[in-house]
Design a protein around this nucleic acid. Structure first.
Length: 280
DNA sequence: TCTTTATGGTGAG
DNA sequence: TCACCCTAAAGAT
């Protein structure tokens, strides 16, 4: 059985989409199952189609079938994809919400509460997707995209600690990436883009893209490779061992030794180094 | 066994 | 800004 990587932020969703795509794209479908009310009526037609592609838009995933329908899913905090050999369902008490069973692998989505069927041409108009800013994991998005955005009056007067969580500014960034990006950019969460000098603003845009892509490549490890620690007991890299500041409250900054701070910011916990990210 | 927390998001006021 | 929804695992008792 293969449990698709991690859950909640853009990089984890994209990795899950990669797994699902490799498992079921182009394969004859044995069965489609929907575990939420109102969707079963679409299953028959999907069983005669094949999956063409699995797209992600920030934290949203869209599974496209070649007969013109697509399945939108958002995992929120709880959804989890598994890919398994046919009918080798995982041992879990979770609720199965969407299943694509093919002759090769089954792709199973558990616990997700937001699953919708759309026509492919309507995907861009979906209420969640249509409001998203650029996704730093998309090929056509780069540092310049966000440099410009940070100068845009719509965003430049906001505190960066708030801005980074807004999906309309950048799609797919969540709470751990927010703390990590600000740390590597050396920017205090209260800073406003328009008050930063040009170099710092560009560095913030650069780290936004770099750290998000690093998280995708590593499966959520955001600390610099040379600094990444391993748990001495089991060699794994969880929590303390994955990030530079996130959830490292009261631990020493690995760059300067100062004690990592923590505070609620936009109703979520934010972590920063008071020396590497001085108040503005 | 109960309570808290969580890498997310919506809608009311 | 707040209450609320979704569900699972960790922490407290």
């Amino acid at each position: 059985m293969c449990q698709a990587a991690g859950v909640p932020e853009g990089p984890e969703i994209r990795r899950a989409a990669d797994k699902v795509q490799a498992a079921i794209v182009g394969r004859p479908i044995r069965q489609i199952f929907f575990g939420l009310p109102g969707l079963s009526k679409y299953a028959r037609a999907m069983e005669r189609a094949r999956v063409e592609e699995v797209q992600t838009f920030g934290k949203a995933m869209v599974t496209h079938f070649d007969h013109g329908l697509s399945v939108y899913s958002h995992n929120q905090l709880y959804g989890k994809w598994y890919t398994v050999r046919p009918d080798q369902d995982p041992a879990t008490n979770r609720q199965l919400r969407f299943a694509v069973r093919t002759d090769h692998r089954d792709a199973l989505l558990y616990s997700a509460s937001t699953i919708e069927v759309l026509r492919r041409e309507d995907v861009r108009d979906h209420p969640f997707i249509s409001r998203l800013g650029p996704d730093p994991l998309h090929d056509d998005v780069d540092v310049t995209t966000f440099s410009k955005r940070l100068r845009d009056p719509a965003f430049s007067g906001r505190q960066v600690g708030t801005l980074l969580l807004e999906q309309s500014f950048a799609a797919g960034i969540g709470n751990y990436l927010r703390s990590e990006i600000l740390f590597f950019a050396g920017v205090h969460p209260c800073a406003k883009p328009r008050a930063l000098d040009g170099n710092t603003r560009r560095k913030l845009a650069q780290k936004l893209v770099e750290i998000t892509r690093r998280a995708y490549a590593t499966g959520g490890v955001t600390d610099e490779p040379r600094r990444v620690k391993r748990n001495k007991k089991d060699g794994q890299r969880r929590g303390e061992y994955r990030h530079a500041v996130f959830r490292r409250v009261k631990q020493p900054c690995r760059a300067c030794g100062a004690t990592i701070s923590e505070a609620d910011f936009s109703s979520r916990r934010l972590f920063w180094c008071p020396r590497c990210q001085p108040a503005v």
